[in-house]
Simulated assay, not measured.
Amino acid sequence: MKIIDEEIQADYKNRINRVFEFIDQNLDSDLSLNTISEIAFFSPFHFHRVFKFVTDETLNQYVTRQRVEKSALDLLHKNITTTEIAHKYGFADNSSFSRTFKKYFEISPTEFKRQNPNRHSKIRQLERKNGQEYPPYEKYICIIDNLKKWIKMNAKIEIKEMPKMNVAYVSCMGSQNLENAFDKLIQWAMPQGLMNERTKVLTVYHDSFKVTEANKVRMSASVLLDKPVEAEGEIGLTTIEAGKCIVGSFEIEPNEFEKSWTGLFVWMNENGYKKADREPFEIYHNNFNEHPERKAIVDFCIPI
């Protein structure tokens, strides 16, 4: 009976993966319960319950959050108007976008864009989220300077044209669940003959820690495929499209990942690059547990 329950749960999660991908690609379109439940092959009533169980949000809450958070990233990284952003993410008009945005971030899109972009990064968390005051300007500048020094000392940074990559993945929400997602992926990949010393393992980030609460950031534990495979259960298949990336190569301790990511985004801004509408990812080149100093050899990739 337990095996049947696990198979049902895996099938449900696979269907929800399809929903995530559809929503990501259609934030400007009709994402009503009836439309999305058809993508998942559920009745609207049953889909509502399953989606809430998997994400801890209703479909409407999830879609609205995605639209607002993605629009916030555009305000930070792109030189486009709020009217263009409203249209891009499926809001009826500019006033509807502004009203929804302000409800979420407690300030208007215009004010959000006017303020220092880094005010909303992990360096300067919104006060309402963690009850902390923003660091004073001098301390903030010191943090940025330290990040620049850190990147200069610890990263080899290149602009690369990355190839198209076919991957199998297990999706999860929150970094606390990423290790479990990798365990499931590797348990599936080993019997398929996909794991060897040349295999590349990746984490793809579908949300940004800049604007999304850590426990709601969606990630995909992924393995690069060198042959066609069939997905089953919780395993999904997708393609990371080819394109230009900032690639930061690091040899770091596990607790230095956040600092490395933040520093690489600072480098991106300092050097005049703009993030593309594609998802950042990490490519791992070793198992840090087997490194003599327990360090990870990893590439951080920001599409531009």
Score class of each variant (00 low, 15 high):
Lys2Asp: 13
Asp11Cys: 04
Tyr12Ser: 04
Ile23Asp: 14
Gln25Lys: 13
Ser29Trp: 02
Asp30Pro: 03
Leu33Ala: 04
Thr35Leu: 01
Ile36Met: 07
His46Arg: 02
Arg49Ala: 03
Asn60Gly: 03
Asn60Glu: 15
Tyr62Lys: 05
Val68Ala: 02
Ser71Cys: 01
Ala72Ile: 00
Asn79Trp: 12
Ile80Asn: 09
Ile80Arg: 09
Ile85Asp: 00
His87Met: 11
Ala92Glu: 15
Ala92Phe: 13
Asp93Gln: 10
Thr100Lys: 07
Phe105Ala: 00
Ser108Glu: 05
Asn116Cys: 14
Gln125Phe: 12
Leu126Arg: 04
Arg128Val: 13
Cys142Glu: 14
Ala155Val: 08
Ala155Ile: 02
Glu158Pro: 06
Ile159Thr: 14
Val167Phe: 14
Ala168Leu: 08
Val170Gln: 00
Gln176Gly: 14
Phe182Ser: 06
Met190Ser: 10
Leu194Tyr: 10
Val201Ile: 15
Val204Asp: 06
Lys210Gly: 09
Ser222Gly: 15
Leu224Pro: 01
Asp226Leu: 08
Lys227Asn: 06
Lys227Thr: 15
Glu230Gln: 14
Glu232Trp: 11
Glu232Ala: 13
Glu234Gln: 15
Ile235Glu: 05
Thr239His: 05
Ile240Lys: 03
Glu241Tyr: 14
Val247Thr: 08
Ser249Asn: 13
Glu251Phe: 07
Phe257Ala: 06
Phe257Leu: 10
Glu258Ser: 11
Lys259Leu: 08
Trp261Val: 02
Trp261Pro: 00
Thr262Gly: 04
Trp267His: 09
Met268Tyr: 02
Asn269Met: 14
Gly272Arg: 08
Lys275Gln: 09
Ala276Cys: 12
Arg278His: 11
Glu282Trp: 00
Asn289Lys: 11
Lys295Cys: 04
Lys295Arg: 15
